[in-house]
């Protein structure tokens, strides 16, 4: 989505008095989605824009390098598509409104809250979930560090945290303690595993993975 489009959308949200999340869920117009399966088009602000829905339409995704297809309503989020359509359940639904990070996945290598991205917007992009981090039965170094440092208790926040930590370390291979505290404050844990998570990140950073 281009920046000017995104600004436009935020403004629209303010005017209508609905939250962005509600807006995403009820809206069926998206100005920046690639044309798929021949949606009809309308003239809006002098431009021809495709209209999806109401009702389900064919969508396709690239998730963990594999192609997936589904018939989805435009209001379905990426998180619900992953979990309910494709049974990829590592990302969890917790707050369902971009507050806790339990649903963190990567889109084109950038961490996003999958509960607040529409599935329709994720088409044509690389979606990466926690399930893909393990390679040939071997845990990713950050996953191994979570195990070594006992960084999960109930474990429900863990997949989101692992993905967020991986993205964080990719960007900050040698973080300071302050970097870690700031960079990972978008994910919440109820059992209180932050101590182990800090140690896990330190372990990977030291090894220079």
């Amino acid at each position: 989505m281009r920046d000017d489009d995104s600004n436009k959308k935020e403004k629209q949200d303010e005017r209508s008095g609905v939250s962005r999340r509600d807006f995403l869920k009820i809206s069926s117009i998206s100005v920046a989605v690639p044309l798929v399966a021949g949606p009809k088009a309308v003239l809006a602000a002098g431009e021809q824009v495709p209209v999806h829905g109401p009702g389900a339409g064919a969508m396709q995704f690239t998730i963990n390098g594999k192609k997936y297809k589904a018939n989805l309503e435009p209001r379905v989020t990426l998180l619900d598509a992953l979990r309910d359509e494709f049974d990829i359940t590592g990302a969890k639904r917790v707050c369902d409104r971009a507050e806790c990070g339990a649903c963190t996945v990567l889109i084109n290598n950038k961490p996003v809250y999958a509960c607040s991205v529409l599935a329709i917007e994720a088409q044509g992009k690389q979606v990466t979930t926690v399930e893909s981090l393990m390679q040939q039965g071997k845990l990713h170094p950050i996953q191994q560090a979570f195990v070594d440092n006992d960084a999960s208790q109930c474990g429900f926040c863990t997949p989101g945290f692992v993905v967020a930590c991986k993205a964080f370390l990719d960007k900050h291979p040698n973080p300071t303690a302050e970097d870690i505290r700031h960079g990972l404050s978008g994910n919440l844990c109820r059992c209180g595993t932050y101590h182990g998570i800090q140690q896990a990140i330190a372990q990977v950073a030291q090894k220079g993975a």
Binding site: G90, V130, E131, L139, F146, V147, G155, F156, P159, V162
Partner: peptide, 16 residues
């Protein structure tokens, strides 16, 4: 821990 950090652990919410 390994099944939890890799997203394989199935919680009630994940049972389909």
């Amino acid at each position: 821990s390994p099944v939890k950090v890799s997203g394989q652990a199935k919680y009630t919410y994940d049972v389909k």
